[in-house]
Nucleic acid binder design. Structure first.
Length: 485
RNA sequence: GGCCCCAUCGUCUAGUGGUUAGGACAUCACUCUUUCAAGGUGGAGACACGGGUUCGAGUCCCGUUGGGGCCA
């Protein structure tokens, strides 16, 4: 118990789950699983005016999607106010904290004025210097008061597992507010109390919290509590190298799910953003990542989020899946795009699996199914402009039209016989096979590229191939007639 | 402005005093192919700068510059 590894994810419920938070959560979780420790969920909702169930569900859904199970919680700070107040009282009793009656708006004005004239500003402890009479006066007037933590005059240093020795002078830290006038604790106090109460052994969080750590260490010391170990993770940046935020586009974890990314690929990619196993491995399943994971191997430099590489990796995962798995993952998207109906799952199962096999190499995300394979399912696929320019002309139409009877005559409609028929026809008519293949592909699929044409034609079926081709030929003829008239 | 963190190809990274500085994505060329992909082969591409320490520095120290974060 004493040496048990216990880490936490402590999200503030903002209504969405940032990929940066997901990465932080992931590293905590990997660390816990690697050391057979506990991963605890704690919702830091004291700051939030109203944190709804829904906001928390976003977090839970995200963790679940990525396969990160938690061992305890979620605990809610908003339900633990009395605990924090108890600790604040302890500090007050020991003269390690004091009441402050200053009007926050006044202080804010002073601060802004100081910044404007490029001066540093810190709270000057004026309420600490209040005489008993002055204090009594303010109490009598019922002026709202907060509790400030008295920063002792010393330097603070701590050992960060990623950044090594970090030192900060106490004079650079101001007496921070730890309890608001409404009795709600501030971030630093609640965090310290909870990290202790929940037995957190390692605080693994992003580096933008590193300036909070000395304050928290001072709080641990003032409260006489044991300190956890600290590891401050590098930030995830957008392409302009500033902290990844909404203005960079998709930063919510669930938007990646909606865009058709697989949780395994997401975990794999995120794990490599700031960490590496030390060898050249990149494609790793979650189990392998857990086994290799080590805080010592985290790169302290910030990392740019590279969606292109994530996309590539996702494609690798899709290609590596069994057709059954792929179909299952694809299903909700195919329903959404109107490619299939619920009952097709049973009726057309084996056909669907064959389509999966044929297109899986071309899918980078699950949503690609609509672009890459729409023509297998429905008739409203589009024709590539460039392709029509090439093949929608008298000479080509003629070639295809000549070939159609041969296609019709094929008895055993399998790839081999279609190919044989095309090649024979080409030979007897002194054509290159591609002169038939290319327009045929365009007419049947609307595209110039794709899986092998003959296999594709088998899956689309003879009748549909014929009718699609005839439709194009008729369209062309109609167009010619209109021109001559 | 103050304080803090960071610095290897465009991007993610390997590298812990002696390496032709390795890999991956992206990019380019070739190859395979009915096409598009994927694959295969190859190319181009980095130690921010300046001082030290050392026989020897991407690697250790200091400074500069640049980027980022927090205070907001």
């Amino acid at each position: 118990m004493k040496n048990e590894i216990r880490v936490r994810m402590a999200p503030s419920p903002t209504g969405f789950f940032h990929v940066g938070s997901a990465r932080t959560a992931l590293y905590n979780w990997l660390f816990a699983r690697h050391h057979k420790g506990k991963f605890i969920l704690r919702v830091e909702d004291t700051d939030v005016a109203r944190s709804s169930e829904k906001m928390i569900d976003v977090i839970l859904d995200g963790l679940t999607w990525l396969g990160m199970n938690w061992d305890e919680g979620p605990y809610f700070q908003s339900k633990r106010l009395d605990i924090y107040q108890k600790y604040v009282q302890q500090l007050l009793d020991n003269d390690l904290a004091y009441y402050c009656y200053c009007d926050p708006e006044d202080l804010e004005k002073e601060k802004q004025a100081a910044y404007k004239s490029k001066e540093d500003w810190q709270y000057d402890r004026r309420c600490l210097k209040l005489s008993p009479a002055e204090r009594a006066e303010k109490e009598k007037k019922k002026i709202p008061k907060v509790v400030r933590f008295f920063i002792p005059n010393q330097s603070v240093s701590f050992h960060d597992l990623i950044h090594h020795e970090i030192r900060r002078e106490a004079k650079d830290i101001e007496d921070l507010i730890i309890l608001r006038s409404n009795g709600v604790p501030t971030y630093n106090l609640a965090c310290v109390v909870d990290d202790y109460e929940m037995g957190i052994s390692h605080v693994i969080r992003a580096v933008d919290h590193i300036t909070n750590t000395p304050k928290q260490i001072l709080l641990f010391e003032a409260l006489g509590l044991p300190k956890p170990e600290y590891a401050h993770l590098p930030l995830i940046l957008g392409h302009d190298k500033s902290k990844l935020s909404k203005r960079h586009g998709a930063v919510s974890l669930m938007s990646y799910k909606e865009q058709g990314y697989l949780p395994g690929a997401m975990v794999n990619y995120l794990s490599l953003l700031g960490w590496s196993p030390g060898d050249d491995r990149e494609m790793m399943n979650t189990q392998e990542i857990i086994e290799s994971f080590d805080l010592n191997r985290i790169n302290p430099a910030n990392a740019v989020f590279d969606e292109t590489k994530l996309e590539w990796m996702n494609g690798q995962y899709i290609y590596g899946m069994s057709n059954e798995m792929l179909l299952q993952q694809l299903w909700p998207f195919m329903i959404e795009y109107g490619l299939v109906k619920e009952q097709d799952n049973e009726k057309k199962k084996s056909w669907l699996l064959r389509v999966c096999q044929l297109v899986k190499l071309r899918l980078k995300t699950l949503t690609d199914i609509n672009d890459v394979a729409r023509y297998f399912f429905v008739e409203d696929y589009e024709y590539e402009e460039d392709g029509l320019n090439k093949h929608f002309n008298a000479a080509t139409i003629r070639i295809v039209e000549d070939f159609l009877p041969k296609l019709e005559d094929i008895e055993e409609y399998i790839a081999l016989s279609i190919e044989e028929s095309v090649r024979n026809h080409a030979e007897t008519n002194k054509l290159k096979a591609r002169q038939i293949i290319h327009p045929l592909r365009l007419f049947i699929t609307g595209r110039q590229g794709g899986p092998g044409l003959f296999e594709t034609m088998v899956l689309i079926g003879k009748e549909r191939c014929l009718s699609r081709t005839r439709r194009l030929i008729n369209d062309f003829k109609k167009q010619q007639e209109e021109k001559t008239n």
